[in-house]
Computed example of a mutant assay.
Amino acid sequence: MENENLLKQISFIKEIDKIKYIQRRTKLFNSDRNENDAEHSWHLAMMAIVLAEHANEPVDVLKVLKMVLIHDIVEIDAGDTFIYDTAKDHSNTDEELIAAKRIFGMLPKEQAEEFIAIWEEFEEGKTNEAKFARSMDRFEPLLQNTSNKGGTWAELNVDYQRVYDKKKVINEGSTSIWNYSENLLNECVDKGILKK
């Protein structure tokens, strides 16, 4: 049984290497190179560790780390949907649930169930951990786009209100980070990076 579990876990580890090939629309800080999902997940994990004290409620940091490290693994099958995409809704959870069951289902049963449950908890966004993890997920690209003079906002002519509406979820996980974010967005308007 132990050997069987190990073989399943190694198969899963090999499979998730594919996340490194999933390109995001957002570019790295002060760069013209697109970020991939693995880089994004790593960055969110570091942000969660560093910024945990700013969560609105106490959080289990290990659980937040699990959420941010696994939340985009489903994009191996489902692909990355750009948050400002007007043709396809960003909450494509039906496709993603199928992907979650396939990919996490490669693991031993107990681990598979845990990962699916953590992924679902992140998607629902109701627990303190999920709210904070989702805050990190929305905060990182905001920082990237502001470092790139508007980045994908400017490229795709995304206006202030659309950005604001997508980013305000940050407040659910961290009011202090949301206040910082709101100030950044207003600075972007003042600099002409975002149009109101």
Rank of each mutant, 00 (worst) to 15 (best):
A99I: 10
T86E: 13
K20N: 15
D85H: 06
D72A: 00
R33K: 14
A78I: 06
F82Q: 04
V64F: 02
A45Q: 14
V59A: 02
L44A: 02
N92Q: 09
D32G: 04
N56E: 03
K63I: 06
E75V: 00
K20H: 13
A45L: 13
D85I: 07
S41A: 15
D37A: 15
L62S: 08
H90C: 09
H43E: 11
H90K: 15
V61H: 03
F29Q: 10
K63C: 02
D60C: 09
Y21S: 15
A55W: 01
L62P: 01
K101F: 00
A78K: 06
D77M: 05
A87P: 00
N34E: 10
D89R: 07
H43I: 08
I73P: 01
P58F: 05
D77P: 00
G79A: 05
R25F: 08
A48N: 04
T26Y: 12
E57C: 06
V64L: 00
T86P: 00
I76C: 11
Q23E: 12
D37Y: 11
K101Y: 00
D85S: 15
V68S: 04
S91E: 05
K88V: 15
H71P: 06
K20L: 08
P58L: 10
L44Y: 01
L44P: 00
N30H: 14
S31Q: 08
A87N: 08
M46R: 15
E95Y: 07
L44T: 02
V50S: 07
A100Q: 09
T26A: 09
K20W: 07
D94Y: 11
L97P: 02
N30G: 10
V74M: 09
H71Y: 05
K88W: 11
K63V: 04
V59W: 07
K109D: 14
I76A: 11
